[in-house]
Amino acid sequence: MAIVYSSLVYLGYILIFPGFLFCFVAGMLITGIDRKIVAKMQKRVGPPILQPMYDFFKLMGKETIIPAAANKTVFLAAPIVGLAAMVVIQLFIPVISTPILYGTADLIVILYLLLIPALAEIYGGSASGSPYAGVGLSREMVTIIACELPLVLIFLSVAKTVGNAMGTGLCFSLSDIAAYQAANGSLMLKASMIPAAIAMLLVIPGETGNHPFDAAEAETEICEGMLAEYSGAPLGIYKLTHAIKTFTLTALFVALFLGGIGTGIVLLDALIEFAICVVLTIIFISLVHAVTARLKIEQLFKYYWTAVSAIALISLVLAWFGM
């Protein structure tokens, strides 16, 4: 009996709470708020908050055209794998300070899991065989490389700081980080962590491919880049993955740097976390979206590998010398 119960709870975790349903709603709301705020900043009225939901369900009803030159199986399977991996990442991230799936993955696994949704889009685009997709995926790959260095430095510095405090000198597992923060205050307050937090906030728009860094999906230049040949349900799933990614990355930031403010009750924590994520998106994604122009791909790369990496490196060096 216990097995059945625990597997039901396990299934509940996956499909309902921090899993698919919660991500769907949270992701859609955050993207809706993001679009509304960007519109407001341009003195426009902007779409209703539930606009991403309408977009998603409209796309569900549309016809899915598969180009003759496309490789059908990869073309249709890629979005599903991308979305599944995205939700899996969301499961591994502790809700502020209570880890949901204990002991399955750690920081490095998260770093590599973040690649899968981007890879799903890349292989979807390349399977469609369109030259726009080719250019799009080349830019997407360069964006991934660009965002990798700062993320690596941030994760290493977080691991080192928590490791120092925990005595083992190194701690990658997310649940220990969450436990540490629950015990003695969120990491954001430590001196060595502030540059890492700033770097992480600068990386989020790049990682999710939002406006100033969306050379990969530039609808004006290369007709939506990798998604040029997608229509109907697969396109809807890609848009959903993009929405959930915004939520997941901000949730990751909250889990890594603001762990201390958890109250212990999981549902309440989830609301607090969602609120913080909305605030972070407004400041670091919408404001940046409304204010900047799209960067060329090599400017994006140079920006990430020099400016943001330098900030992250400061925190790594500080963490290294035991601050």
């Binding site: 299934l11 996956i14 499909l15 698919f20 599903i80 979305l83 599944a84 939700v87 899996v88 499961l91």
Partner: peptide, 11 residues
């Protein structure tokens, strides 16, 4: 295991 269950849900 997680990935497979989610793949089912999303299909």
């Amino acid at each position: 295991l997680l990935l497979c269950i989610l793949l089912l849900a999303i299909t």
